[in-house]
Design a protein around this nucleic acid. Sequence first.
DNA 1: ATGACTCCCAGTGGGAGA
Length: 255
Amino acid sequence: MKLATWNVNSLAVRLPQLLGWLAAHPVDAIVLQETKLTDDKFPHAAITEAGYRVEWFGQKTYNGVALISREPAADVAKNIAGFGDESARLIAGTVAGVRVIGGYFPNGQAPGSDKFAYKMRWLDALRDWVQAELARHPQLVLMGDFNIAPEDRDVHDPVAWAGQIHCTPEERAHFAALLGLGLVDAFRLFEQPPKSWSWWDYRNLAFRKNQGLRIDHILVSPALRGRVQACTIDKEPRRAERPSDHAPVIVTLAD
DNA sequence: ATGACTCCCAGTGGGAGA
């Protein structure tokens, strides 16, 4: 079983790339972030014609998530129950017995800002909700654009980024709290190339210079940990014309 | 360096992203 996450930074722009990627990488499920489409404009027909089921949850201009899967997703949930979020940031469904959660975590803009405070509240609510989900669904995967670089080795220039958004102790403590629920960072279960990133700034030739951050993650529950066979970042789509600034992350689970 | 690029909604510029 293969699962993936990809922040596409506008599905309207990236739909052809997504369909091409799915044809080359027939995953069982992929979660998307930053679709930036209201639900009436979501391109469900093109995805269905490619042989997938899809659930979507979006809004105008910002945010927006989707869950694409070979098998239909059961018990679909949108956003964090009880949190009252105005942004479309989370979608979950049970696919082939695995609870798949895709999230577009708040950016946070800058430490001390209102958006940072919202990010902290959102992460608090997420942790509590994921804990409850884990109790109901021991086989669980939480993946998406976390907008958190968990460690200095996830940052191309840890000195320049120290204390900056994505790298603050507060954000890293929230990431650690998710690990505290028993979740495991699938990427770090394996030896990985140094300087592995999932996002590169559009500016300043950052991709060519491999200056990026690892902020897109796949966390697996204790019940799934033993099934994890591989976890990789696919940099290839970042080389495309008009790429997303994020690369897909893929996890392979034993059947 | 208050930069750089890309996307969106706007409307001949500006906010947000990360």
